[in-house]
Amino acid sequence: MKKLRLATTSLAGCFGCHMSLLDMDERLIDLLQFIEFDRSPLTDFKTFRQRCDIGLVEGGCCNEENVRVLRAFRENCDLLIAIGQCAIMGGLPVMRNAIMHAEQPLNECLQTAYAPSETVWNPACRIPADAELPLLLDKVYTCAEVVKIDYQIPGCPPSADALWYVLNAAVQGNPLDLPPELIRYD
């Protein structure tokens, strides 16, 4: 039997969805008979080795780098699945959008984080800005705003059971619809 190739990435997420993937525990070991990992923070493949059957995306897009990676996932994966609230709705990072009513929201954020204060020693009032740092987007975008997403697994994070159910269904060639008890919004 040909193994399914799986790629995963964490964009503007907290890595909790990847932790939930590892929470499959022993089932992960079993699953390895049917699944092979390609590009993923859990492996040392930093780019795609081959075209993948499934891409799991955690987190939305808050900078250009996230957009670039998400597009690469769309291009290289047959099925693209957004996992977790951040990928689907923006999650915690999207709270940044809620302060967009401020006159200079980005500047406010910068000042809050980096301006000299009780503990911040910054005599030159420097704000990180370097060609090495990817550009921030004006607001946080969900994955579906940037590329076509085939499936979404909600939850913060989705439970290991839900992730296992989907991967297992894909291995079996079954439809990827979650039973209601595995769907949660937290």
């Binding site: 980005l106 800005a129 740092l133 990817p134 550009l135 987007l137 004006d138 975008y141 705003e145 940037v146």
Partner: peptide, 21 residues
Amino acid sequence: LGQMPLQIELLDAQGQRLQML
């Protein structure tokens, strides 16, 4: 949070520009 000095555009799946910053 930090600041970036350059311009960025965000395109959607169809290549349409969503945002320019």
